[in-house]
Simulated assay, not measured.
Amino acid sequence: MTLPTDRRTREVGRTVSRVVVDHLGQGFGQPLVVAVSGGADSSALLCLLADTQSRHGWRIRAAHVDHAIQSSLVRARFREAARKLATAVEVPLDISEVDARAEAERSQGGLEAAARRVRYDALARVAQERGASAVAVAHTLDDQAETVLMHILRGSGLDGLSGMAPLRDMADGLRLVRPMLDVTRAETEAVCRAYAWTPVEDPSNLDQDHTRNRVRMSLLPLMREFNPNVAERLAGLAGSVAADRDLLEMVGGLALSQLCDEHGTIARRSFLSLPGQLQVRVIRAFCRERGVTLSAERTGAALQVIQHGHGVVELPEGGRLSVAGGTIALDPGCPPAET
């Protein structure tokens, strides 16, 4: 593959490599799975991380997930692009096929959300099978701006306005890193040109039945008439809000340590003396410490029950948050049996 010599591409490569090291540390030859669809963003990420292995120290391997959504012709085109690119940058490639439609039917949810779940599940399996401790995905600054706008449209709070985190946990001992949240989509396309690589165009990106596509194709262009740098401003907003959210999380953890008694319960009166946003962080931390992650809906239900003074909120895996006798208690239930 042609190695780029232009300064901007090399700068983007150094930026991406530095983000990986900042969040994951030096790899020292450990495997890092890079998700590659064959599109411009993931192709650019794979090219840059494969090209800068001497900088970040991670041994790059690619993973392609076929969601079985699009036509067989389109799916074959993406698979072949992933194979050719992995060969060109001299990294091994794993290909997984999943059934996003079946997951959508099982969960009775949207296809986009189902595809995201099965994709991350597949990437986690590949990483675990290959002994990798992390997976890298190619979300860009533009993706971050779109995500923030979508959360605003849905009426999100701090968590939604924080957008996508540059680093998060996927499974036990496995992390997800997003090294390109400061890189624009235009820059990923320029990186592909610099490497003389022609990415595959995804026809589904033109389907305005998808909210994200409408945001990208209709809403953001209109907002750029008011501020040409609106994507950068929205991504910056996500970073600022994330910092504030993290501070609240820390304060919530400290408050929880003071509120919890020796029985692992919380006095309702003391809890209600906290400011509203701190109540949210404390009750989430209370559940998280016991292995239960509260959705926004269940967080609201828990706060309502606590305000009312008695009642029960059913939690995932058979858990129960109960309020009675002036006390807030949690029975986390049992994890599902391994099969």
Results as ranks from 00 to 15, higher is better:
Ala115Cys: 02
Val118Asn: 04
Val118His: 01
Arg119Val: 12
Ala124Pro: 05
Val126Trp: 03
Ala127Ser: 08
Ala127Val: 02
Glu129Gly: 14
Ala132Asn: 06
Ala132His: 07
Ala132Trp: 07
Ser133Trp: 01
Ala134Lys: 11
Val135Glu: 09
Ala136Asn: 09
Thr140Glu: 04
Gln144Asp: 09
Ala145Pro: 12
Val148Asn: 05
Met150Gln: 13
Met150Cys: 13
His151Arg: 14
His151Gly: 14
His151Met: 14
Ile152Gly: 13
Ile152Trp: 01
Leu153Val: 15
Leu153Asp: 13
Arg154His: 15
Gly155Glu: 11
Ser156Asn: 09
Ser156Val: 12
Ser156Gln: 08
Gly157Val: 10
Asp159Cys: 02
Gly160Thr: 12
Gly160Tyr: 12
Gly160Asp: 13
Leu161Gln: 06
Ser162Pro: 14
Met164Arg: 14
Met164Val: 15
Leu167Val: 15
Leu167Arg: 10
Arg168Ala: 12
Asp169Met: 13
Ala171Leu: 10
Gly173Leu: 03
Leu176Asp: 03
Leu176Val: 12
Met180Pro: 07
Met180Gly: 02
Val183Phe: 03
Val183Thr: 13
Arg185Lys: 15
Ala186Phe: 11
Glu187Met: 10
Thr188Asn: 10
Glu189Gly: 01
Ala190Arg: 14
Ala190Val: 02
Ala190Asp: 04
Val191Tyr: 05
Val200Arg: 00
Pro203Ser: 09
Pro203Val: 06
Pro203Asn: 05
Asn205Asp: 14
Asn205Gly: 00
Gln208Asn: 04
His210Asn: 04
Thr211Pro: 08
Asn213Trp: 00
Asn213Leu: 02
Val215Glu: 04
Val215Leu: 05
Arg216Gln: 08
Leu219Lys: 01
Leu219Thr: 09
Leu220Gln: 04
Glu225Ile: 02
Phe226Thr: 13
Pro228Gly: 01
Pro228His: 07
Val230Lys: 09
Val230Leu: 07
Arg233Glu: 14
Ala235Cys: 09
Gly236His: 08
Ala238Ser: 15
Ala238Phe: 02
Gly239Asp: 00
Val241Gln: 01
Arg245Pro: 06
Asp246Ile: 03
Leu248Glu: 05
Leu248Arg: 11
Glu249Val: 15
Met250Cys: 02
Val251Ala: 10
Gly252Glu: 02
Gly253Asp: 05
Ala255Lys: 03
